[in-house]
Every structure is written in structure tokens, then in C-alpha cells.
Simulated assay, not measured.
Amino acid sequence: MSNTQSILSIAKRTLETESKAIQNLVNLLDEQFAHAVQHILDSQGRVIVSGVGKSAIIASKIVATLNSTGTPAIFMHAADAIHGDLGTIQKNDVVICISKSGNTPEIKALLPLIKIGKNKLIGITGNMDSLLAKQADFALSTFVEKEACPNNLAPTTSTSAQLAMGDALAISLLELRGFSSADFAKYHPGGALGKKLYLRVADIVANNQKPQVDINSSVKEVIVEISKKMLGVTAVIENNSVVGIVTDGDIRRMLSRYDNISGLRAKDIMTSNPKSVDVDILAVKALEVLQAKGISQLLAFDGDRYEGVVHIHNLINEGIL
């Protein structure tokens, strides 16, 4: 077997092992899961997620997912918790502890401290006979038959199962809260996903220059305006209204069509009825128009008032495309 075939065989075996383990989680779900979700939903506090080793890394990822989907969460390393960080847990918080064995020394030391604070405990463990499972108010099984590691040592399948269980919790909470795309945008204002949900044409146009020429402007004036405003286009104005558009493509076509351009005006080379959008629509909708029409720019209007230009490069720079 060549190296390529061997590598692909290992990768396929790994993915098959992990996918089967995650699929089996469906069979392990019971009322404990539903009660855990409902308790978090009813709680007035936050969700504190803790673990040690690879489980701590998974805990950190679950915290990020919960926070981004409307459930306030904080990561607390189990080892640090028993050395001063226990104060992270407040009165109404719900604690999630993640451990494959459920019997790691740090988790065992943490459990009685959580009980003293009378916080509800959700245990995510691969060992339902463990101290964590027995001490938890809600025990969620992430049992796996074996790790993807051929020595059955490196946490691989087990951490995949933990992460999937965390996603199941987060998405259950998201749907029960009625967490919408608008809510998602509020939590992701700087990301491309968030921008698709909140960035409007007005936000883009405000940062662009506003190219325009009179209908009787000379070709030289048109070219200067297009070059100066750096959007590859200019609106053509007559009596304070837009009557056409001249693009850099129109300029190239003009040069190939006319030997003498000295007497030409904007009205002679413009395109009437230019494609436009309202400044209040989402930028992603403007992108759809640009792609559908196969063009690079759109004029933007607030009602009948010309506000400027949105260019496809603006959308690329914003990460929308």
C-alpha cells in the first residue's frame, strides 16, 4: 500500500470511529438531558463549564458556543478552581463538569465544593459509574467504546463526543430561547456572519465618495470624476435628479467607437435607467443584485435622493463575499 493510500485509510478509519460514537450519543440521550436544558433555561445565573486536560479545551469551546448563542457562560479550569478560582461560581450559576473518566483528582476535589455552594451540577462523562455521574444533579453520558487512537489512549473520540454533547445543549437552549438571526448579529458584530445580518447599504455608502456629473459635462470631466472618486462609475445628474450612469466600461466602449471625443458630453455616453438599490436594504441583498445583474456597482438611493455608490469591492472588503 502506498503512503497516500495508507494515510487515507487511517483518516477514514478515524472519522468513521468518531462518527459512529457521535451517532451513538442519540441512543444515550434521556430525560436527564431534557431536565438539564430546562434547568439552565430557568436559571437566573450563568453556566460555568469546567474540565481538566483535553476536557478543559472542550469546555472552553462549549463556553464560546453558549455565549455566541445567547446563554451566558464562563470557563473555569478544574485545577485552578481548587486554587482560588472557585469564586467564579456565583449563587445562581449552573456548573457543567466534563470528564471522560469522571474520576480525575481535580474533578473529585471540585465536586464537594460545588455541593457546598448548592449550585446545580451537570456532569458530562463517559463513565456513568463514576463519582461525577453519581454526584451530578443531571448526568449526561458521552460513553465511547474506543478512542480513534490505535493505542486507545489519546483523547479523540471521547472529546468529539463531549463537544457534540455541548453543541446539543447549546442548540437546544438556542431554539427554546427563540434566539434569532438578529440576536446572532448582535453577538457577532465584527464577523462576516454578523455583517450579513446587520450591515446595510447606508453603512457602506457613508464611507464612499459620491461621484456625480452634470448631464452636459464634458468627457474629460466625466473621466476626472470617475478617477477622483475611485469607484469606477459616476451618476449623471439633470435638474437634481439622476438620469443615467457612466462606468469605466462605458469610457472604454466610447474610445473604441469614436475617433474624436472632444465634442461628446455625459449624455452621449451614459446608460439610462441605471441599476439601483435603497440605502436601507442589507448589504448582502445588494450583493445578490450585483451578482444577478453581473455588474460591479449600484447607485444607492434614499427614496428619490441619490446617496452614493456601493461597489462590489466594498462587500469583499467587509468579508460578505
Results as ranks from 00 to 15, higher is better:
I10Y: 10
E238N: 13
K146W: 11
K267C: 05
V95M: 01
M76Q: 02
S180N: 05
D167P: 09
N152Y: 06
S296K: 15
G70T: 13
R200L: 08
L255R: 07
A79D: 08
A109V: 02
I251F: 09
P150V: 12
K54M: 06
R13C: 10
R46M: 06
A56K: 01
M165C: 10
L153I: 06
F138P: 06
D137C: 05
I171F: 14
N260G: 03
L132W: 02
N92S: 14
M270E: 12
S262K: 14
K267P: 00
L111P: 00
V219E: 03
H83D: 08
S158G: 01
T157R: 03
G249A: 09
L25P: 08
Q291H: 15
N103M: 03
A154D: 14
S218A: 11
T71H: 06
N119A: 01
A235V: 12
I122A: 00
L29Y: 14
E31D: 07
K220C: 12
S68M: 08
Y187T: 07
F138A: 00
H188I: 03
L231T: 08
L41S: 10
L132P: 01
A154V: 08
I62Q: 03
C97F: 01
S6Q: 15
L197R: 08
I107V: 05
L66V: 05
V219W: 04
A182V: 14
N239T: 11
D80F: 10
I57Y: 10
E31M: 08
P189L: 01
D248Y: 11
G194I: 03
G117P: 00
P105K: 13
L111Q: 02
D42E: 15
S227A: 14
A139N: 05
